[in-house]
C-alpha cells in the first residue's frame, strides 16, 4: 500500500530535480494528462480496496486515458472548441466519486476494527 505512494513521491522528486520544462503551448496537454493519471491512480486504489483490482485494466487505463485526454485537448484546439473541458469535467467528477468511495471504505474498515488499525 505504501509503495505506490512512495513511488509518487519519488516521481515528484525526480521531476523537480531534473528541472524539465515543457513549452507553454503544450502545458495544456500535460495538465490534462496529469489529471487523467491521477484519476487512474485513484480509481486503481478504489478498485484495490473493493477487491476488483485488475492489473491489465489499471495499466491500460492509465495510458489509454492519458492519450485520450491529450488527443481530446488536441482536437479541441484544432476545432476551436474547448473540448479539454469535457475531459476535465469527466476526470474531475470521477476523482471526487472515487475519493468518496475510498473514504467510505476506509471509514467502514476503521469502524469495524478500530483497535486493529489504531
Amino acid at each position: 500500500m505504501w509503495l505506490p505512494i512512495f513511488g509518487l513521491i519519488v516521481g515528484v522528486f525526480l521531476g523537480l530535480m531534473t528541472d524539465i520544462r515543457i513549452p507553454a503551448e503544450y502545458s495544456n496537454y500535460l495538465s490534462i494528462a496529469v489529471l487523467a493519471a491521477l484519476d487512474t491512480l485513484i480509481g486503481g486504489m478504489r478498485a484495490y480496496l473493493q477487491n476488483l483490482y485488475d492489473e491489465r485494466v489499471f495499466v491500460s487505463g492509465f495510458f489509454f486515458n492519458i492519450i485520450l485526454a491529450a488527443s481530446l485537448a488536441f482536437l479541441g484546439v484544432h476545432l476551436g472548441v474547448d473540448l479539454y473541458l469535457a475531459a476535465v469535467f469527466a476526470f474531475g467528477v470521477r476523482l471526487f466519486q472515487n475519493i468518496a468511495v475510498i473514504r467510505r471504505i476506509l471509514l467502514a474498515k476503521w469502524s469495524k476494527s478500530p483497535e486493529k488499525s489504531l
Partner: peptide, 17 residues
C-alpha cells in the same frame, strides 16, 4: 502500480514546474 505512480508523479512535477 509503483512504476505508474512514479510516472504520474513525474508528470505532476513537470507540470508544476
Amino acid at each position: 502500480v509503483t512504476v505508474i505512480s512514479v510516472i504520474a508523479g513525474f508528470m505532476l512535477a513537470v507540470q508544476f514546474q
